[in-house]
Design a protein around this nucleic acid. Structure first.
Lengths: 335, 335
DNA sequence: CTGTTAGCGCGTTCAG
DNA sequence: CTGAACGCGCTAACAG
């Protein structure tokens, strides 16, 4: 593969002149520019980003680390990230940890070695170690979706507590009193906050505290399937279920179906996050929707601001409101 | 960020000795190794991959370019690719072109500049230019899923023609004679081959050639929605539809539903590729399934073989058989 | 407007 | 077992 020097020789100029043509920096006469461009074309010269980055100490790479690449919530965030990044000339490396801390640390290590310019990070757990690993190398990082305790760091997330509160209030207003909560892993802040919102709504409604039926599982279809089976064995059986995310809701739906129960006639079902587009032919689930695309955009804006050195003030926490979208799955009459 | 030299100074050795410790190459006494490792830990030294790659002329990066990252067919391939790549110490950069040739060329350019070691490539069109772009830089490339005319290149793909043939034969055996084909873009080899298989089955069954009802659209839900509407307006209306991929089938399903037709009672529906897991609570669609994961693995094996210089023989074309999985959507009685 | 010098961080080559 | 010198391909800094 030809180098900048080969091009320079062919065009009869110095390497730096070729560099100027490529990067459109500094002055180059039209005539020599033409000669250089001809040489580039003839040699099919492709600049070497590695060398460029080594010199400039910038890679133009952002790392986006998510915990489940099959979840449209995260892929929608990814689109927001990509769009903003591309608008500013950055590329995005998308990595999937599957909520696995070992994979997470492997990715962080590799990405630091690759000298990415910054991280957009959905951590697998709400503990500070992983973020500190990044910060100690003085690489900017914005945490998305989840809160981390014990570190100063920028965070962009949805309002899990309030969303859960409103969603459960909706169920209460429809007359439900036994509402099961299908939660996610206790180690993740969003799960904890959604449980908190659930409890607040129940408390305000004066529902007996013992009526709080919380079941924790993974943020997956399988997790939702299992916790739903637990929830259904309670007596009396819950008349409504609140799934802490979309995949849990999919699993719940399957478990309900297998139990011969239909939604919303036998059991009402609501959840956090929009379901996959392909999930149902028509919109069906009542959800607390987060503005995922916008969250991705804002997180990237914030990261780029840190990168450009401006706005070196204290860390920010940007909390997006969630939107309750009532559809058929919650029913509309008293159970 | 500390460099290898900083570590060397701190440990009281030469940079090369640190290099030997990191890469476990050459001889280093236990004692100095310990000193070096201590220095690495204290300084939180992270080796710079950029510099390493510049020197070694290897990045350890494979590019995987697909046309639709939301399609589980491609994400399953991606898993196969990632697994094999990781087993051999390579990382994978996953890029999504959305069947857009401009995006495709942008990605190719950037990835060549990044000096990825090789390409796994699902081309947006079955024309040779994009592959030639890669080959002219002497970078190995394996094409996945689609055939390219006019170039010598390794290809790993499913047997579209035979799969379509068998799928249509299944419909014929169930008594269908008016079978509409919801095809993909004519510029893509898989669409053309699936149409060919469809025609062969009809011809062998002695179905009137005029009865070939082929409608071309995008390989998307929207494409399937539109072509289905066209297909339904034919008189007499087709009794069965064959969707050229899973997303087309999703769109067909929606269009049928809106037209007040149910599957399989009013219209039978079959398609190429498995549908998204979340699409239906229970398996429902009759499909021609390609071994996507295995295709990803084999393609990567082949690419890595080319990379290691071995097996420099002629280009290979590996064609996987597809598996017909009959489920409810095709019905089981004469229409 | 163009060129020279030097060095980014690392690993290969060859000496000790 | 350890080190010095050099260069991978490119560009910042400084001439001219």
């Amino acid at each position: 593969m030809p180098t900048i020097r080969n091009v320079a020789e062919r065009a009869g100029v110095a390497p730096i002149t070729v560099s100027r043509v490529i990067n459109d920096s500094g002055y180059v006469s039209e005539e020599t520019r033409a000669r250089v461009e001809a040489a580039i074309a003839e040699l099919r010269y492709v600049p070497n980003t590695l060398a460029r980055s080594l010199r400039s100490r910038k890679t133009g790479l952002l790392a986006l680390i998510v915990t489940d690449i099959t979840n449209p919530f995260f892929t929608t965030i990814a689109r927001g990230v990509e769009d903003v990044a591309n608008e500013h000339g950055f590329s995005v490396i998308l990595c999937n940890t599957d909520e696995n801390e070992d994979k997470q640390i492997d990715y962080l290590t590799v990405l630091l070695q690759k000298r990415v310019d910054g991280f957009l990070f959905v951590p697998a757990r709400s503990t500070p170690e992983s973020v500190q690993l990044i910060q100690r190398q003085n690489v900017p990082v914005v945490v998305i979706d989840r809160q981390i305790s014990g570190v100063e760091v920028d965070v962009v997330r949805g309002d899990s507590e309030q969303g859960a509160y409103e969603l459960v209030n909706l169920l209460l207003s429809l007359g439900h009193r036994r509402i099961g909560m299908l939660s996610g892993p206790e180690t993740i802040s969003t799960a904890a906050q959604r449980v908190a919102g659930y409890r607040r709504a129940l408390a305000e409604a004066g529902v007996d505290r013992d009526a709080a039926l919380v079941y924790c599982g993974a943020y997956t279809q399988e997790g939702g399937y299992q916790t739903t089976q637990q929830a259904l064995s309670a007596t009396p059986r819950p008349s409504a279920l609140f799934a802490a995310n979309n995949f849990i809701a999919m699993g719940a739906f399957r478990a309900l179906r297998e139990a011969g129960l239909s939604v919303p006639e036998d059991v009402a079902l609501v959840c956090f996050d929009e379901a996959p587009q392909s999930a149902m032919i028509e919109p069906f689930l009542t959800v607390a929707a987060q503005p995922a695309y916008e969250m991705g955009r804002q997180a990237t804006d914030l990261l780029l601001a840190r990168l450009s050195g401006e706005a070196l003030q204290a860390c920010q926490e940007i909390v997006f409101p969630v939107e309750i979208i009532a559809r058929k799955s919650c029913g509309s009459v008293q159970p």
